[in-house]
Structures are given as structure tokens and as C-alpha cells.
């Protein structure tokens, strides 16, 4: 019942020319390192949810446990979040 414009992705995460080769999904990043959120490759719902949890483009976060696969643990703004599959693979990060 919702129109198309309401359903689209919140940020298309198209890789700009010459940049972004080092972007990778959060779930594939290395544990214990700090990352910067580049973009969130998900629907509008997910983006808004992430924003309310403090995860939005430009924010720095630390990956506490990734080797354990999904769900992974991140530390962002001093709180610890556990992000399952379907979320952590949609958050693209760059090393910071």
C-alpha cells in the first residue's frame, strides 16, 4: 500500500569513482579495530533504526568481536550493540 518512494533504499551505497575500494561490510571487518561508517546499504526502515541506535554515516565504531561471525558486537558512542546477520552485512565501513 505504500508508494515506491517510501520503500526505496535509504542510501544506495554506490561507490564513488576513485574512492571506496576499501569499503567492506562490518561483518567482514577485523576485530578490535576502529572503523568509520561509510554508508548503510539497507531499506529506509533499517537506516532510521540504525540512526536511532547511533549508527549513521560518519560515526566511528569499534568492532569487539567479528571472528565469531554474526551476530557481531560493536562499541559505538560508549554502548555495546549486537548486530545480527541482515544488519551487520549492510553496514559498510572504512578503516579509520
Amino acid at each position: 500500500m505504500l508508494n515506491g518512494w517510501m520503500r526505496k533504499k535509504c542510501c544506495p551505497c554506490a561507490v564513488p569513482k576513485g574512492a571506496g575500494q576499501n569499503r567492506l561490510p562490518l561483518c567482514e571487518a577485523a576485530t578490535g579495530k576502529r572503523f568509520k561508517v561509510a554508508c548503510i546499504d539497507g531499506g529506509r526502515h533499517l537506516c532510521a533504526r540504525m540512526a536511532s541506535l547511533g549508527i549513521y554515516p560518519g560515526v566511528e565504531m569499534e568492532l569487539l568481536c567479528a571472528g565469531c561471525g554474526c551476530p557481531c558486537l560493536v562499541r559505538v558512542h560508549g554502548s555495546t550493540l549486537s548486530l545480527g546477520a541482515g544488519v551487520s552485512d549492510k553496514i559498510l565501513v572504512t578503516a579509520s
Partner: peptide, 11 residues
């Protein structure tokens, strides 16, 4: 679909 797992781990 399973709801994406999203949980804050409080201190």
C-alpha cells in the same frame, strides 16, 4: 523473515 537481530548489550 527473521527479524534482524539487534540488541544493545547493557553494561
Amino acid at each position: 523473515p527473521s527479524t534482524p537481530f539487534l540488541l544493545e548489550l547493557p553494561p
